[in-house]
Amino acid sequence: MHQYYIIDTVKNRRDVLHITQEYLAELSGVSLRTIKQIESGKGNPTVETLSKLADVLGMELTLVIKQLNP
């Protein structure tokens, strides 16, 4: 999964819900600075941070195990 997919997903979902970055920070407990870094492509969020954002945005993080090519 590319970083840009995560960025676009967070931004788009926030827009659909009409949630500002500031309000997302307040609801999720993730700092505004971190959210701005994530959305600008400069951040490297932890799984915990992404999980907090996903929870507020009504989304769920999932990990998928890919098959390895022999």
Rank of each mutant, 00 (worst) to 15 (best):
V47W: 02
L57R: 10
E26V: 01
Y4W: 03
Y5Q: 14
I19F: 14
T20L: 07
V10L: 15
V16Q: 14
T34G: 00
K66D: 10
L27S: 09
G58C: 10
E60D: 11
T20F: 02
L32D: 06
Y23G: 00
E26R: 07
N44W: 01
T46Q: 09
Q21F: 00
E26S: 08
G43H: 08
N44Y: 05
L17G: 04
E48Y: 02
T9Y: 02
N44H: 11
I7G: 09
M59T: 03
H2P: 14
V56D: 13
P45R: 03
I6K: 04
A25Y: 01
Y5G: 09
N44K: 08
Y23H: 13
L61H: 05
I35A: 11
E26I: 01
L24D: 02
A25W: 03
L24I: 02
H18Y: 04
S51W: 00
L53N: 06
L53F: 01
H18T: 04
M1K: 10
H18C: 03
N69R: 06
L53C: 04
T9S: 14
L53K: 02
V10H: 06
T34W: 00
V16S: 04
H2C: 00
G29D: 10
I7V: 15
V56R: 10
T49N: 10
K52S: 11
D55E: 13
G43C: 10
E22P: 00
R13P: 05
L27A: 14
N44I: 01
L53V: 07
E39W: 08
L63T: 07
L32Q: 13
Q67Y: 03
E48C: 00
Q3H: 13
N44V: 04
D55V: 00
P70F: 01
L50R: 02
T46Y: 02
I65H: 09
R13D: 04
P45A: 08
K52T: 00
V16R: 12
A25E: 03
L17I: 04
L61N: 05
G29M: 04
L50A: 09
G29F: 02
V64F: 04
Q67D: 14
V64Q: 12
G41T: 11
G58R: 08
L27K: 15
K42E: 14
I7W: 03
G58T: 03
G41K: 07
K66Q: 12
T34K: 02
